[in-house]
Design a protein around this nucleic acid. Sequence first.
DNA 1: ATAGGGTTAG
Length: 330
Amino acid sequence: MWGAELVPNVVSFSAAISACGKGREWQQALSLFSELRETALEPNIICYSAAISACEKGEQWQSALAMLSELQDEQLRPNVISYGAGVSACKEGGQWQRALSLLRDLWMAKLEMDVVILSAAVGACDKGGQWQWAISLLRQLQTSTLEQTVITYNSGVSACKEGGQWARALWLLREIRTARLEPDAISYNSGIGACKAEGLWQHALLLLGDMREARVEPDLVSYNSAVSSCEFCGHWRQALSLMRESSEASLQPDIISYSAVISACDKASEWEAALSLLGEMWEAKVQPSIVSYSAAISACEKGKQWQQSLSLLRGLWKARLKPNSATTVQ
DNA sequence: ATAGGGTTAG
C-alpha cells in the first residue's frame, strides 16, 4: 500500500486490526493500532472495538479493558459492540466482577442491552464460580422484553454445575421448555455434567434417556460427562459400559473417554482394568495423555503393583510426556 | 467502505 503511494486511512486500519484479531494475532493488532496513533489519523470507535476484540481473542483482558478506558479518555463513547468485546474478554479471564461492572456501565450509558452480552456476562459468572449472579442475570433476561435464547440458559446450567448446584442446574434445564425453547445437546450435556456428585450417576443416565426421548442425539460429550459422573461415584463397570455404548452409537471414544474410565478404575482400585484400557488406547490409535497415564499409575499404586507403576512411568518418558506431581511412585 | 459479543466432557 505504501509502495503504491496509497495512504491507508482509518477504514483500512480497522479492517487490518480486525483481520489480525480473527487470525489470533493480538500483538500484531496492537502494533497496528500504535502505528495508527503515529499517523495524523484519529482512531474511531470502530478501530478501538476491533482492537478490543483482538485482545479478547488473544485472552488479554487487561489490554482489552485498557483500550476501553483509553477510548473514553479520547472522548469517544463506547457502544454495545465495544462493551460486548470487553465483557467477553473479562469472561475469558475469569474476571466476573469486571464483567458485571461493564454491564452496569452499559446500563448507565443508557445503551440497549442485548441477549448476547447478557449471555457473555452469565458465562463470566460461570467461569468465576458465581452461580447466584448467573441466575440473577438470567432472571433479568426473563423479565425483560429481550428474546430469550437457549444459549443463555446453557450458560446458566453450566454456572450451576460449576457451583456444585446440581438441583438448580436440573431445574434450569427444565425451565428451558417453560420458556418455550428447545434444549439442545449442550443443555443436556451441562445437566449431565452437573450430576457429577455423590450418588448422582443414575440421574446422569436418566438424562441420557431424556435426550433420546427428546430426539436430541447424545454426542461424545454427553457420554463422556455421564462416564465422569460414574467415575466420581466409583462405578467403573458402569463407566466402561457407557463407553462401549458410545462405540455402538458410532461415537469413537476419545482421549477424554478413556481417561475418565481409567480414572474410574483408579478410584475402584481396579489396576488390571486400567492397564488393559491403556493398552486398548494404543490399539484404537488414541494417544494416551499425561492424564490417562497418571490415572493408570495411581491405580497400580493402589494395587501395590510397583513394577507396573515403574514400567508405566518409563512409558511416559518414552512417549515424551512430562510426568507431573500426580505421578510419583512411592 | 471499516468493529462485535454467547454454551458442554478427562
